[in-house]
Design a protein around this nucleic acid. Structure first.
Lengths: 205, 205
DNA sequence: CATTGTATTGAACGGAAGTTCAATAGCAGT
DNA sequence: ACTGCTATTGAACTTCCGTTCAATACAATG
């Protein structure tokens, strides 16, 4: 009673898409082969045939998830801004608003994050991905510091990049269970309040 | 074949302690009645007898966890610091170092956080708890802003408190899977770099 | 058209989960 | 000592999980 045959890569893609849907709806821990196969209109056995094991299915989902995560790209209009701190702020704003625009991906990523605590393979994938993410902030941070080296003695580009990422992650965590209460603009305003002083020195009254 | 009888509150406490141990070792999702009962040297049925349901056991564990979380208390030597920003920084430092000193509790809290995405009761408990946490930063933040109102027009005490909490949570997330690589002091130095300028105006060269 | 390979199915299996429950044993009160 | 209450046990039940596998039908090859 087998159904239609489909070339392998498309089948994998179809099953992965179904896996994503299930994981987005029920969370990673309730993502079972049965549910995935039902969502993909496919037999449970076929899922095993293509992915060998549940664990490997989830690892493939993580790859899928990270692959389609757009790398932090500073678009032209941002890089045209004259002030280094304005550039950093603009990027922060876009990253933070991304949190509310794709909540499912955020939740799923954090599900994997928690799974990574106990699974070395997951942990490693996430570690390298977020190292890359943090690294993408580094040039921005370096520009900011270079603009006023004497005011931030002891602050390294990596440190500033790390704090930037921390703020974003903190917002992500907050928005995850407090989505409606969490005001991105308000939060950003405060962050900007801190960052502003990385730019030209304010006139001291 | 029943064993010794134990007054109810002690039994509950004993089982909760065992639940904590299991959850700390295996994570919230692998915290099963069977494992808990084994860890408590008790029959599975007794766990059900005292907690009705697995879900209620976990809710009780969450209460247990939040109850024994020390409220953010600014100790005397911190409140003796003359500079408002120094006080905020000192509190930040202590909170961040707490992340690495009790990693198990952090992980477990985040496990609940993720569970809260899909469970309203858990979500509500966490929401109020962290609202209280954020609120405890408010007076500190207000002092900082009051010291230099003209420099931070538009930044509210709530906003600054929120960013402070975001930084801490972001560090927590980071440290969870990158514990050995994550340098608290380096990270804090950068955060302090931002915060410093909330204090007395630096002499502009 | 026959053959071969393989994608596909669906039933089956073993295990572990949460929950239920009749039986039992310890304790308090009389 | 007896009675009654309840904490406690451990087995049974249902369900669902991941996984295995023999049977099957489709597609390409000859």
């Amino acid at each position: 009673m087998p159904g239609k045959r489909v070339p392998e890569p498309e089948r994998r893609e179809q099953i992965l898409a179904a896996t994503y849907d299930v994981a987005a709806e029920h969370g990673l821990w309730e993502t079972t082969i049965l549910r995935v196969s039902a969502a993909a209109n496919v037999s449970p056995g076929l899922v095993m045939f293509h992915f060998e094991t549940r664990r490997q299915l989830l690892l493939a989902l993580l790859d899928h998830l990270l692959a389609q995560t757009t790398v932090l790209l500073v678009d032209p209009e941002v890089s045209a801004l004259p002030s280094p701190s304005d550039r950093l702020i603009a990027v922060l704003r876009r990253e933070m608003s991304r949190l509310t625009s794709e909540p499912m991906r955020i939740r799923l990523t954090f599900d994997f994050w928690m799974a990574g605590v106990r699974d070395a393979a997951i942990r490693e994938k996430l570690r390298t991905e977020f190292a890359r993410y943090r690294a993408s902030f580094r040039p921005l941070a370096a520009d900011v510091l270079r603009a006023e080296p004497e005011r931030f003695a002891g602050v390294t580009p990596d440190g500033l990049a790390g704090v930037s990422v921390s703020i974003i992650k903190g917002c992500a965590v907050q928005s995850m269970i407090d989505a409606e209460h969490f005001d991105v603009e308000d939060h950003l305003a405060a962050a900007v309040g801190l960052m502003q002083h990385l730019g030209p020195a304010p006139t001291v009254g």
